[in-house]
């Protein structure tokens, strides 16, 4: 009997630095491929996950980014939250994890609006932490 991969939930915890966002989006692409999303849908998801993570790590104070990928109602869902640096540990950057280039929240939001069915971000838990989610529905024909 084969295992139902669609019931799986995948969790990833990465440092909240720009070098690790590649891992977040390639993980999402690999999971979407396993869940039979189309090539175009996977390309959209890679970009959406990148923007999603940028939105979370933008700004100072985050030390880690916790992500959870799962399939629900034929949609790939992603939940993310920043884990703040504890006293004595090293935050990603004093000026924000996106550091050397300017982050455009407007461009990022436009991309997310176009590529996924639903997305959002809220403050907390805790001062300065952020929680976000996105959902992209799979093409019913795939």
């Amino acid at each position: 009997m084969s295992r139902d991969l669609h019931a799986d939930r995948v969790e990833l915890s990465i440092p909240a630095t720009v070098e690790w966002l590649l891992l977040a989006r390639t993980t999402g692409a690999a999971i979407a491929s396993r869940w039979s999303f189309t090539y175009d849908e996977i390309a959209d998801l890679k970009l959406a996950i990148d923007e999603f993570c940028l939105t979370l790590v933008e700004g100072p104070g985050a030390e880690r980014l916790d992500l959870a990928y799962y399939l629900e109602n034929d949609s790939l869902c992603l939940e993310g939250r920043t884990v703040l640096a504890t006293p004595g540990s090293q935050a990603a950057s004093d000026s924000g994890a996106t550091g050397a280039v300017t982050f455009s929240a407007d461009l990022s939001a436009r991309i997310l609006d176009a590529l996924v069915d639903e997305h959002g971000i809220s403050d907390g838990p805790g001062d300065g932490a952020k929680t976000a989610w996105l959902r992209k529905k799979r093409n019913p024909l795939s």
Binding site: D50, E51, L54, T98, T102, S104, I111
Partner: peptide, 13 residues
């Protein structure tokens, strides 16, 4: 093969 909003920001500036 991939270009995100930060890349667009660099091109626009």
């Amino acid at each position: 093969s991939f270009l995100d909003s930060t890349a667009l920001g660099v091109l626009v500036s």
